[in-house]
Amino acid sequence: MDIIKKDSIVLFEVLGNKHLPEYLQNRFHIHIFCHRGRISFSFNDRPYKCEAGEFVFWFADSKLTGLTFSKNIKATVLCVEKDFLDFNIPDQRWSIDALLHSKENPVLHLSNKDDKKRVLSNFQLLHSKFLETDHRFYNEVLSLQMQVFILEMWHTFANEYEHRKRTLESGTHYERFMQLVQEHCMKEREVHFYAKRLHITAKHLNYICKQNTDVTASDWIQRYTKERIILLLQDKNLNISQIADEMNFSSRSFFTRYVKKILGITPSDFRNRLG
């Protein structure tokens, strides 16, 4: 399988105040478990800190700036080449909300020892299979191990997602709106739906969003919807009519017009570009 390159999977430790090489941030999906110290960075223009016992994940080509490690840092870093990971993604519908949650919330607090062991064990298992090049079924075994790794990560993301849902139930209107959008934008794309659930007017909801992020409620809805559409279109097990039905569009033609509006191309053209 040509998708496997000699550096498709890189595993190493960071000790002391260092920087990740630029090529890693551009070509690789990066997973880091922080044993001690602190990692500071800005992600999508928001500042974050990852501390001991926490896990951070960045997609390749993320808007990542200001990455620094504290002097006492000890962290395990797993880098997986973008094309190789993307080629082996299981059915994304299984955990689409958890996956998108990780895009918006890159730092996960691993609340128990089992989660920490699972993350580090999966790092090592994937890297070990990658190094086992004399295996008779190397390509097949590595592909399966990659899928297991992804499913285990989705399990961790899903636990964090559910925990965050519970803690936000008593949060501010803005926090609750963001959670509602993540949960319902597959089928609900009107500001009035969310305003009604929050018992406020659509105008007031837009005001709240602008105050918090300088982005309107409708723009937030469209952003989350766009992410889901891209992920579903990347799943070639689904035809376009199925995706339109799953997202509650009245017809395939209406779905096509909506996709062209937010992506600039039709669903068919998007898939053709994927190859």
Score class of each variant (00 low, 15 high):
residue 158 A to I: 06
residue 175 E to I: 02
residue 145 Q to W: 05
residue 115 D to R: 07
residue 241 S to C: 09
residue 157 F to P: 05
residue 230 I to Y: 07
residue 167 T to R: 14
residue 31 H to E: 08
residue 140 E to I: 13
residue 256 T to Q: 07
residue 141 V to T: 14
residue 229 I to P: 09
residue 158 A to L: 11
residue 42 S to P: 04
residue 251 S to P: 04
residue 48 Y to Q: 05
residue 89 I to Y: 12
residue 240 I to Q: 01
residue 118 R to T: 13
residue 76 T to F: 00
residue 251 S to A: 06
residue 200 I to H: 02
residue 44 N to C: 01
residue 77 V to H: 05
residue 244 A to I: 07
residue 117 K to W: 03
residue 118 R to E: 07
residue 117 K to A: 11
residue 196 K to F: 09
residue 163 H to A: 08
residue 115 D to S: 07
residue 265 I to L: 10
residue 144 L to H: 10
residue 201 T to H: 09
residue 229 I to W: 03
residue 18 K to H: 12
residue 207 Y to A: 07
residue 113 K to E: 14
residue 158 A to H: 14
residue 248 N to E: 10
residue 231 L to Q: 12
residue 72 N to L: 11
residue 114 D to K: 10
residue 94 W to V: 08
residue 103 K to R: 15
residue 252 R to A: 08
residue 126 L to R: 08
residue 41 F to R: 03
residue 197 R to L: 12
residue 162 E to V: 00
residue 35 H to A: 09
residue 147 Q to H: 09
residue 244 A to C: 08
residue 135 H to Y: 11
residue 247 M to I: 13
residue 274 L to N: 06
residue 172 T to V: 06
residue 154 W to S: 07
residue 46 R to W: 10
residue 232 L to C: 10
residue 28 F to P: 01
residue 90 P to V: 09
residue 31 H to Y: 11
residue 191 V to C: 01
residue 92 Q to P: 07
residue 250 S to M: 10
residue 183 E to F: 02
residue 44 N to A: 15
residue 16 G to A: 04
residue 41 F to K: 00
residue 125 L to N: 11
residue 217 A to L: 01
residue 59 F to P: 01
residue 74 K to W: 06
residue 41 F to C: 05
residue 126 L to E: 04
residue 171 G to E: 00
residue 131 L to N: 12
residue 74 K to T: 10
residue 247 M to E: 05
residue 118 R to K: 11
residue 57 F to V: 05
residue 28 F to E: 10
residue 20 L to N: 02
residue 42 S to V: 06
residue 123 F to M: 03
residue 64 L to M: 04
residue 36 R to E: 13
residue 55 F to C: 01
residue 52 A to T: 03
residue 185 C to R: 06
residue 135 H to L: 13
residue 86 D to P: 02
residue 188 E to N: 13
residue 19 H to G: 14
